[in-house]
Write a protein that binds this DNA or RNA. Structure first.
Lengths: 258, 258
DNA sequence: CCACATAGTGGCAATAAGCCACCATGTGGT
DNA sequence: ACCACATGGTGGCTTATTGCCACTATGTGG
C-alpha cells in the first residue's frame, strides 16, 4: 500500500482511511458524498472562421498554471446526474445554459493524474459564439478560446486532456459526416452558406454546394424564417432549425470530391 | 494494518471519514485506492439463432438474488485503466480473454444505486459462442445467457441496468448498420451466409443477399480460407477476417427493403 | 447603370444499394 | 445411378443519392 503525499499531517489519517475503505468495499457498503469522478468538457465554437475550444488556466495544484479543459468534481449536493455536472460546468465557464451536450467517453487510470487513480467523463458541447459571455472575473480564472489547429504546439494541455480533446474532436468530426450537428454552432437564424461553411471548417475540407443544399433541405430539418440576410451582394434566405429537428441522421456520409 | 471491525463500529467512523474526504478534496489531494467507480458490461453472443446477453445473479447486497449485468469495482491493484477492469471482468465471467470490447457510455447519479452516488462505465463485448467457458462454479455465481427479446418480461435487471443494457444494445444495432462488427460474434472461420444471418439477427430484419455479399466482399476485409463448409446441400466458401480488417466503416448504412 | 460577388438551380454522370431471376453444386432418398 | 431439393453464388437491371459544373438570379457598390 503506497501512499505518497506532501501534506504530512494527513498521512496517518490516510492510512486508516484506506483500510476503512477497503473494509467497506468488502462489505459492499458505500455512502460517500465525494465520488472521485470528474467531468471534463471540450466546448467548441466557431469563431473567426476557425473551430475553437475553450481552455482554462488551472488556478490550483496539480498542474497549476497550465491550460486544461474546463471541468471539475461531481458535486453531489448540486448534481443528480453526470449530465447535471456537465451543464453546471458549461454554465460556469461560458454563461450558456442551453446548448448541444453529449457524453463522449470516460478516461480512467492510475497514471492520468498525479493524485492517483481517477476517472473523468468527457463531454462535448457546441455553442454559438454569439451566446458566449466569458466570465473571466467571476472566478478569477483565465479562460480563453484556442483554435483547434493551435492545440499541441502553441498550447499544451495538462493531465491527459490532449487525449480527451482528441476523443471529443474525433467524435465531432465523425458525427458531422452523417448528421446535422453543426447547426448547434450557429445562432438561431442562419443561411445555408453559413451552415455549409461551418461544416467545411469542422471537416477541414470543401463541400459541394448543390449536394450540401439538397441533403440539408431534403432532410426537412430546417424551416425558412421568412427573413433574408442582407449585407453584400445577393441576399440569402434565413433558416432556423425546426422544433425537434435537432439531430438528423443521413443514410450516407458526407463525402468529399472524387 | 488490521482490518477487523464490525459494521456497527464503522458507523461513527463514517462521519469522520466524510469530513476527511472533504478536507482532502478542498486541498486537491487525492490518493485513494478505491475509486467509487464500477464497470458493467453487456456481453453479447449469438446462440440458437438469437442475440443473447450474459447476466449474473447477484450474490451480495444490494439487490441480492436479482439478475444484473456482470461487472464490479475497479480494482486499483489490478487495473491500470478502465479497459483493464473490463477485460478482467470479461475473463472472470466467460473465460474469454480476447474479444471485441468497446466502451459505450457512463451512467452516474444519486439514484441509480441505493448505496448513494455512483458511476458505472458501460462496456459492450462481443464473443463467439464457441469461445465461451462459463465459470459457474468458480465464484459460485449464477451466470446465464438470456435472449435480448426476453429481457424485461422474463428477466428483470437490478439497479439501472436496463438502461445500461439498452444503451449497449442501441450502440450495437447502430454500429451494425454501417460497420462489419458482427464478424466478432462468429468463430474465426465462417461462411457469408452465416455472417448475413448474424447481421439479420442483430438488426432484426432481413438483408438482401446480393447487396450484402457485394458490400462485404468489396470492402476487402475478408479472405478465403481455402476450405469449404460442407454439411448439407452445396458447400460454401469459408472466410476469415483479414489481419487488421477488424472494423470497416461503410459509406452507406445497411438499408432494409424498400 | 453596370461589374461583381454571392445565392440558388438544372441536369447529367457516377456510385452503391435493392431486386429478382437464374445458374451451380452438393446431400439424401429411392 | 439418378433426381428432387435446398442452399450457395451471380448477372444484370432499377432505384436512390451524391458529385459535378455550368448557368441563371439578385442584390450591393462604384
Amino acid at each position: 500500500m503506497t501512499i505518497s503525499r506532501s501534506i504530512s499531517a494527513t498521512v496517518s489519517l490516510m492510512a486508516k482511511q484506506l483500510t476503512e475503505k477497503q473494509f467497506l468495499k468488502n462489505y459492499n457498503v458505500h455512502d460517500f458524498d465525494v465520488p472521485l469522478v470528474t467531468v471534463d468538457m471540450a466546448i467548441f465554437t466557431v469563431k473567426e472562421g476557425k473551430l475553437q475550444v475553450l481552455v482554462v488556466k488551472r488556478a490550483q495544484h496539480p498542474a497549476k498554471g497550465k491550460w486544461a479543459l474546463p471541468g471539475g468534481f461531481v458535486d453531489m449536493t448540486l448534481d443528480k446526474t453526470l449530465n447535471d455536472t456537465a451543464y453546471r460546468k458549461l454554465k460556469e465557464k461560458t454563461g450558456v445554459d442551453t446548448s448541444y451536450l453529449e457524453q463522449v467517453e470516460s478516461f480512467g487510470g492510475a497514471g492520468r493524474d498525479p493524485r492517483g487513480w481517477s476517472v473523468t467523463v468527457a463531454y462535448l458541447a457546441l455553442i454559438s459564439s454569439d451566446d458566449i459571455v466569458l466570465s473571466k472575473d467571476e472566478s478569477s480564472e483565465d479562460v480563453t478560446w484556442v483554435p483547434i489547429e493551435d492545440m499541441g504546439e502553441k498550447v499544451e494541455l495538462a493531465f491527459d486532456h490532449d487525449a480527451v480533446l482528441k476523443a471529443c474532436h474525433g467524435r465531432l468530426k465523425g458525427k458531422v459526416q452523417y448528421t446535422s450537428l453543426p447547426v448547434n454552432l450557429l445562432p438561431a437564424d442562419f443561411t445555408l452558406t453559413e451552415l455549409q461553411k461551418t461544416f467545411e471548417i469542422i471537416l477541414d475540407k470543401s463541400v459541394e454546394k448543390k449536394s450540401f443544399r439538397r441533403r440539408i433541405l431534403d432532410a426537412d430539418i430546417l424551416e425558412e424564417t421568412g427573413e433574408m440576410k442582407t449585407g453584400s451582394n445577393r441576399p440569402a434566405k434565413l433558416y432556423r432549425v425546426k422544433p425537434e429537428g435537432e439531430s438528423h441522421f443521413f443514410a450516407r456520409s458526407l463525402e468529399g470530391p472524387r
